[in-house]
Design a protein around this nucleic acid. Structure first.
Length: 292
DNA sequence: AGACTAACCTGAAAGC
DNA sequence: TGCTTTCAGGTTAGTC
């Protein structure tokens, strides 16, 4: 689920629940490669701290602590960040979600064996959970001034990118344009779904050699990446209840997908059958007629 | 340097 | 019905 738009929607939802609250306890599952910082060290460092700001960089979330440290979170493939566990009025519930019974609101958002991190606060309000079935997500604590290898190698955030950023990156690349789009060191935040959608909107075949794109083509492609992501962020906010109900399924954008996951269905533009190929061991969907 | 592969995990869905 | 296989939106480490 989580590409840039999903991470951004999560950030907007969770930030108001996190910021300014003093952490009183940290509960975790046992050490696994999910924890780049060992659970004990994480708990020790976070107790008594508060997060002043929750920032998104590509698909990463960065909590800025009051001691200058940073809490790095990555949702991986199946990560979810949510708050629950108290009837405090501070519990953030979207309008659509409020119409559901409390039991429905919690569906899929209940801490369980896959909930690897729980933050408790001294105001006794809702706890914040990080749940991740596949454990492809990551948690890391960076001390004040400690650099992050992971953040430092990210390219420009996809939403802030310009055509020139992509154009420069594509010059000496023999790889397919889609592989370059997925390279987090170029445009941070683009994932498999939005790459396919943007390529469709820009009428470009995923396999096209990156170096063959003109400057104008790069401008167009970056514009489409941003258009599709901004639209998804917009719908994501309003579809959280669907997300909750259909726990584990797609985010809000799923109804608007033009090609992703639609192999064999007609192209919305020309009616040709959408094809699926494997590129860099990932599924890629495109219209063989519209995308050249 | 860039391109490719395997690996990290679990669960849902499809196939038989 | 139940067992087996396939697939999944991310990233890294290792190899060529």
């Amino acid at each position: 689920m989580p590409e840039l738009p999903e991470v951004e929607v999560t950030r907007r939802q969770i930030e108001p629940l996190l910021v300014g609250r003093k952490i009183s306890a940290v509960v975790t599952t046992k050490q696994s490669y999910f924890f780049l910082t060992r659970p004990a060290a994480l708990a020790r460092a976070l107790r008594g701290r508060l997060i002043q700001r929750l920032e998104r960089r590509g698909k990463y979330l960065v909590g800025h602590l009051d001691d200058g440290g940073r809490l790095l979170l990555h949702l991986g493939m199946t990560g979810q960040l949510f708050a629950a566990g108290a009837s405090s009025p501070r519990l953030l519930v979207s309008r659509a979600q409020a119409a559901l019974s409390p039991e429905q609101q919690c569906a899929g958002f209940r801490p369980d064996a896959h909930t690897h991190l729980c933050l408790r606060f001294d105001d006794a309000g809702p706890e914040v959970y990080f749940r991740d079935t596949r454990k492809f997500g990551k948690v890391q604590l960076l001390r004040r001034g400690e650099p992050s290898e992971r953040l430092d190698k990210l390219g420009v955030d996809a939403l802030a990118a310009r055509g020139g950023d992509l154009f420069d990156a594509t010059r000496r690349r023999a790889a397919a344009i889609k592989s370059v789009l997925l390279d987090q060191g170029v445009l941070a935040g683009v994932g498999n779904i939005y790459a396919d959608e943007a390529l469709f909107l820009a009428s470009m075949r995923p396999t096209r050699k990156a170096a063959s794109l003109s400057r104008a083509a790069c401008d167009l492609l970056v514009r489409e990446v941003q258009r599709v992501m901004l639209r998804s962020i917009d719908t994501g906010g309003s579809s959280i209840s669907d997300y909750v109900r259909a726990y584990g399924s797609d985010g809000g954008y799923q109804d608007e997908r033009r090609v992703y996951g639609r192999a064999g269905e007609p192209c919305p533009r020309c009616g040709s059958r959408i094809r699926r190929i494997v590129l860099g061991q990932r599924s890629s969907f495109f219209c063989p007629r519209c995308q050249r």
